[in-house]
Nucleic acid binder design. Structure first.
Length: 973
RNA sequence: GGGCGAGUGGCGGAAUUGGUAUACGCGCACGACUCAAAAUCGUGUUCCGCAAGGAUUGUGGGUUCGAUUCCCACCUCGCCCACCA
């Protein structure tokens, strides 16, 4: 028998596939199309293991679709513009174009060793003038629609890479450049932007319907950051001027006790302000982003000396300037509600501004036929023992003292009375009111009624040497007042949690939290203060709106203020426009000309591409090297033909990658970025596979550009990627991110040399769930290599075997095993569960092996079918050995053009099945029964099973449960 | 601080309309073949226990005949966002 030698068969088949153009697809025919691609790589020059982890599984899925008779377009390209090429030029004195070209050649060679089913006639390289011509065209089209514009503003500047960055490219806690990790600085510059914010609502709304990982959808949702609220005008005291604020919580307006302006707010120029305020404004506006971040914990601000009028209370409220309000969001002014906003609260505490609570908690969901009650909750505390007094053994948990208020009684009187009645404590050192009362909805199981209660909490400081009551009273006669630690009280209260009407429990837990805070304050001799509450609830201290749920009050208040013409509903987004200019060389030049007479002029479409000059001088000066190339810079104005200068900034590489997938189906089209008919037939991408790191950047930009092209340039779809999958990240064997400095880099090339590409592909898909990634275990690949060896030897032995006649039993068993495997591999592939798909193939191989050991392999139709099916299932995962063995098994055409096998449910079904027998929940025996046994028979058989009998002796069977195909469960006593 | 996700043998992991936990692989041990080794093949391998048996899916509690799966609280780790009003 021949040995399995991947070094021989892999290059052999790669060459055959390329020579026969097996994977080239004629895109003029769009029938049964399936368009699947990985995210194209940046040509760094070296294909690393992460690339393999992206490309190999994508290839497996592509091959699987092809075997199901689809016309698959699977292609690759290079995201070839970008900084590293330029840095290499500076460092090694090689032109970026040359460096890029060499890298692409090297990577193409590496790529081919994977044995991918790419259509090599449709490779796209973004630095190719024939490509970036259309990137520039895209700019012109956006410019035409005023969606590309030039504006002055504060931008993020990376001092190391010497260029501006988009918001999306500034990451992490310290606001660093996502490429080099240097903290960015803020600079005011005039730059080019794409108006992605015009598409914010569509970008958000489409997400609902998309077959994308929830995580990515969530990240995009957060990034777009839609918030609905209202604009409300506050009049300036003693003036006709007004200040408009944006708020998402108009329901809290009665609690707006002051107002804050961003230091950059325009109205500050009109107000008469002191020098002190001017100085503050100057200081804060000059701060860099980093400095503002560092100062984050400590908010600063100054009082302007002016007042505004709260439109609902008509109260004068002071206007402050503070750095915690940003000019870039909303109106740059806020109404501050310290009782219900964490930031306003901190600020109010620091500067001693009034805090007014207007929303109180409303725990639990409203219940049917609620009875309204008012009462108190009392927690006692002894500072000496540090224990709290609660009602132990209350309905098998722990309760708190308290009860309903009597006619004419104050809250505090009620608290005093309840504490005495339920615990026996009469001597209280100090009573502390625990903030505002709260509402709760709960079910009283003793009286079988639903309650809606308004409860006031109290903390009583007492000495625990007082005698406690022996036991509880009336309805809950079992409880026992006891001194307990707070954690145990919480656990005890949680035990009471009912399935409905959980408000009572949550109410108590809230009071526990408040009691602890109050104790801390008491020990420090401070008054107790309620924490700011930013949740929903019911309104208090809000005039005619008292008692309304906050959501309802929001709408009502805005509607009422709108009638007076001082409020309107408003939606805000966090998404900012996309800054696309870069002060670098290696990118598509922005096709714009500046003329002293005519201003900003777009380059005429017929003059595209604006070619990047090749011979430029590289120095990291903070200005584009193009600036020094006079031949490039000096040109004629397209409008007046007078002398003019070109824009020397280039475009962000994310512009290149925001439309490349539209080019693959017609890469050589010269009349536009894509052939309109072909893109209509082949778009959108049916399945897009790549890393989570592009969740926001690339995937948001590509969606925006696709929407734009749909609106104005004939695309019949607005979402570019129907289905998206993310691969996980492969770590080094030590569990850390692979890096040269750590010395934990696994070279895929070495793995291929030692084990073969098929083994590597298989191992990467076998090591765990695809979207999870994880450490690369160097020993693990031996398992998939062994598996392939076993497949190889089975096929080899079969081809050398003598014809035989099959036994009927053997045939049935073989067929059943094969169909079971076809089913699970097919279903697993559907969900990209490669690891379990491979595991079931391994199981089949183990079974075939065992059969060979016991009865041997004969040339029978059953064996032929078993091995054919196995090879077909394996082919998308390990394409080379699949092709080789397919030929060995006597087939003339490529396995990759052969139909994927189907399974037959009837052939999988077995005649008998094993049932577990449980006694009181424990498995005690196993019985083998016919699949279609009746319930009564199964139970009867279970009872008489060997081991079961002894367990049943002298016991009565209370219950018997039969789950067909699974088990019989007997409950005995 | 907020949001999302995860925690199962020595290791990677499998199992969810609640139904025999540990499939598949790595590693390890023993055996066969061999002068020997590698490779290959076979047997075993969650833990405790000689065994009978018992325990076990981060911890504690709950619902259930039955919980890795559902509910509650907590712990740990990972990712994303972070003064967005």
């Amino acid at each position: 028998m021949r040995r399995y030698n991947p070094q021989e068969i892999e290059p052999k088949w790669q060459k055959v596939w390329e020579d026969t153009k097996l994977y080239e697809v004629d895109t003029s025919d769009g029938s049964r199309k399936f368009y699947i691609i990985p995210m194209f790589p940046y040509p760094s020059g070296d294909l690393h293991i992460g690339h393999w982890y992206n490309f190999a599984p994508t290839d497996t899925v592509a091959r699987w679709h092809r075997m199901q008779g689809r016309r698959v377009l699977h292609s690759i390209g290079f995201d070839a513009f970008g900084l590293p090429a330029e840095n290499a030029a500076i460092k090694r004195n090689i032109p970026p174009a040359q460096w890029t070209k060499d890298n692409i050649a090297a990577m193409t060679k590496q790529l081919k060793t994977i044995g991918p089913s790419y259509d090599w006639s449709k490779v796209v390289t973004t630095s190719d003038p024939a490509y970036y011509r259309w990137t520039q065209w895209l700019f012109l089209k956006l410019f035409e629609k005023k969606l590309a514009y030039r504006a002055k503003g504060v931008v993020n500047w990376c001092p190391k890479d010497q260029t501006v960055l988009a918001n999306e490219q500034v990451v992490g806690e310290d606001n660093v450049c996502d490429r080099c990790g240097t903290p960015v600085v803020r600079k005011e510059m005039e730059q080019w932007y794409f108006k992605i914010t015009d598409y914010a609502e569509r970008l958000l709304k489409d997400l609902d319907e998309m077959d994308w990982p929830g995580r990515v959808k969530l990240m995009q949702t957060n990034w777009i950051g839609k918030s609905q609220g209202a604009l409300i005008d506050f009049k300036l005291d003693g003036s006709e001027d007004k200040i408009s604020v944006f708020t998402t919580r108009p329901d809290t307006i009665f609690g707006a006790t002051y107002m804050v302006l961003a230091p950059e707010h325009e109205i500050l120029r009109q107000l008469s302000i002191s020098d002190e305020v001017k100085k503050y404004i100057e200081q804060t506006t000059r701060k860099t982003e980093l400095e503002r971040k560092e100062a984050e914990k400590e908010k600063t601000g100054v009082f302007t000396g002016s007042y505004a009028i709260n439109p609902v209370t008509s109260e004068k409220i002071p206007i402050w300037v503070a750095d915690y309000v940003l000019m870039g969001y909303g109106t740059g002014a806020i109404m501050a509600v310290p009782a219900h906003d964490e930031r306003d609260w901190q600020f109010a505490k620091k500067y001693d501004l009034p805090i007014k609570g207007v929303v109180i908690h409303d725990f639990g969901e409203p219940l049917a036929d609620e009875e309204y009650v008012e009462g108190v909750v009392v927690i006692a505390y002894d500072p000496k023992t540090k224990k709290y007094l609660a009602l132990d053994k209350w309905a098998n948990g722990v309760g708190l003292a308290g009860g309903g208020i009597n006619e004419g009684e104050s809250y505090e009187e009620c608290a005093r009375r309840e504490l005495l009645e339920e615990t026996g404590i009469s001597d209280v050192e100090s009573w502390i009111r625990l903030g505002e009362p709260v509402y709760s909805h709960y079910y009283n199981n003793l009286k079988d009624t639903n309650k809606r209660s308004l409860g006031q909490g109290y903390l009583a400081i007492v000495d625990s040497s007082q005698k406690l009551k022996e036991s509880g009273l009336e309805a809950h006669e079992n409880f026992q007042p006891a001194w307990i630690d707070m954690d145990s009280i919480r656990v005890g209260i949680n035990k009471l949690r009912p399935s409905k009407g959980t408000g009572g429990v949550d109410h108590w837990l809230e009071m526990c939290d408040r009691a602890e805070k109050a104790v801390e304050a008491y020990m420090n001799q401070q008054p107790y203060e309620q924490d700011p509450y930013s949740g929903e609830g019911l309104l208090i201290n809000s005039g005619g709106y008292d008692g309304l749920p906050s959501a309802e009050a929001r709408e009502k208040i805005v509607a009422d203020l709108a009638k007076q013409g001082i409020a309107k509903e408003e939606t805000n987004y966090r998404l900012r426009d996309w800054l696309i200019s870069r002060q670098r060389y290696w990118g598509p030049p922005i096709p714009v000309i500046y003329c002293d007479k005519c201003g900003i002029q777009a380059v005429s479409e017929k003059d595209l591409p604006v070619q990047l000059p090749e011979n430029v001088h590289f120095r990291p000066t903070g200005q584009s090297p193009l600036l020094q190339d006079e031949n490039f810079v000096n040109t004629k104005c397209p409008s007046c033909d007078g002398p003019a200068k070109r824009e020397t900034d280039t475009m962000d590489t994310f512009v290149d990658s925001s439309w490349y997938f539209l080019r693959y189906p017609s890469p050589d089209f010269e009349q536009g970025p894509y052939d309109p008919q072909i893109v209509k037939d082949w778009g959108p991408v049916d399945h897009y596979i790549g890393g989570i790191e592009h969740a926001i950047l690339h995937l948001m930009y590509a969606r925006f550009i696709t929407m734009f092209l749909r609106d104005y340039h004939g695309l019949p779809f607005e979402e570019p990627f129907k289905k998206l999958s993310n691969q996980g990240i492969i770590l080094g064997p030590d569990g850390h991110k692979m890096s040269k400095s750590r010395g934990n880099v696994v070279s895929p090339d070495e793995q291929v040399t030692s084990y073969g590409a098929d083994s590597l592909r298989l191992y990467m898909m076998f090591m765990g769930p695809y979207d999870q990634g994880g450490p690369y275990n160097l020993g693990g690949i031996t398992g998939t290599r062994r598996f392939l060896e076993r497949v190889w030897s089975l096929a080899g032995e079969f081809t050398e075997a003598q014809p035989g006649s099959p036994g009927a039993k053997e045939e049935v068993e073989l067929t059943s095993a094969v169909h079971r495997t076809i089913k699970s591999v097919s279903q697993d592939l559907e969900q990209l569960a490669f690891n379990t798909a491979i595991a079931s193939m391994m199981s089949l191989v183990n079974e075939l092996h065992a059969r060979r050991e016991s009865t041997g392999i004969a040339r029978t139709p059953a064996w032929q079918n078993a091995l054919d099916s196995l090879v077909l299932l394996l082919a998308p995962f390990a394409p080379h050995i699949g092709e080789e063995l397919w030929q060995d098994l006597g087939h003339k055409t490529s396995v990759h053009s052969t139909k994927w096998p189907m399974w037959d449910e009837l052939l999988i079904k077995q005649e008998t099945v094993k049932l577990a027998v449980q006694i009181n929940g424990k498995v005690r025996a196993e019985i083998e029964v016919s699949v279609d046994i009746s319930e009564a028979e199964a139970i009867e058989k279970a009872k008489s099973a060997d081991k079961v009998v002894s367990y049943l002796e002298g016991k009565e069977i209370k219950k018997a449960i039969y789950v067909p195909g699974r088990l019989v469960s007997l409950v005995v006593a």
